[in-house]
Amino acid sequence: MALNLKEIAKKEELFMPGHRLCAGCGTAVLMRQVMLAVEGPVVVSMATSCPFVSAATYPYSAWKVPWIHSAFENSPATISGVEAAYKALRKKGSINQEIKFISMAGDGGTYDIGFQALSGALERGHRFLHICYNNEAYMNTGIQRSGATPLGAHTTTSPAGKLIPGKREFRKDLTAIIAAHDIPYVAQTTPFHWRDLMTKVQKALAVDGPSFINVLTSCHRGWRSDMKDAMQILKLAVDTCYWPLYEVVNGKYKLNYKLRNKLPVIEWIRPQGRFAHLLKEENQPIVAQIQQKIDENWEKLLAKCALD
């Protein structure tokens, strides 16, 4: 059944206000949406990140569900232990209800420093959903590059300078890397596409095994974009095919939307100050390179989705 906002609005919020994420934080929107999508008891493990420091600072917690943080790179490992404890207690009969497990981390805690713990936990088959709130750089420490930072983006450790025009490497395709773990459910989405996101959270939590959702989420501080456009910019990411909405269910790829009019990537680049230098004449080859990569990846994705 398609999700309906009026019905969802009747649910109890589990990620409460009073958190200290920036005004207009895309990750805050996604936290709310994820927690509104959840049905039944859930335990959350979170990596060190903006939503960690902003929503769990003693004595204040925005979380109305059991929640644990222990370090930056180990959220999936931590939830492995919690899930194993749950299995032990279920076997003993001390717990009789179904509990779901979610691990969350940013792109640092997922693509980079936390990748090993994630890969291990997925391979071991723990029943948990890992959500990556991917804003394409280490925003919590002040906008440093990550493996998710796109080609050409300015960050404080891949700055655009007189010689070097921002990040020199393409981002890695983590969603594909996770799909290669051959787990039951893998998807990409954004909080602008709230119905897509919430549906994916529910699907992911329903599978018997590990699942992963890579959520592109805006950080207007890092992206140097307008705070009020925090959601619109995510729409552009999808409409330019920079961030296609798709899922991989038991190995089968599925595109989750019909693209009416594929916009040129410059529409995604233009509103973001992190790409400002790419608008210069001399950097047009970089824009062309980005467009070419997007086109290639889009064709590859369409081919994968058409295979079924």
Binding site: M16, P17, G18, H19, P59, S61, A62
Partner: peptide
């Protein structure tokens, strides 16, 4: 007086912090 090990025992207590 603080709970053992930095636990926050009041779920959703952030509502006490006005932004």
């Amino acid at each position: 007086d603080i709970p053992t090990g930095t636990a926050i025992v009041k779920a959703g207590s952030s509502v006490e912090y006005l932004t």
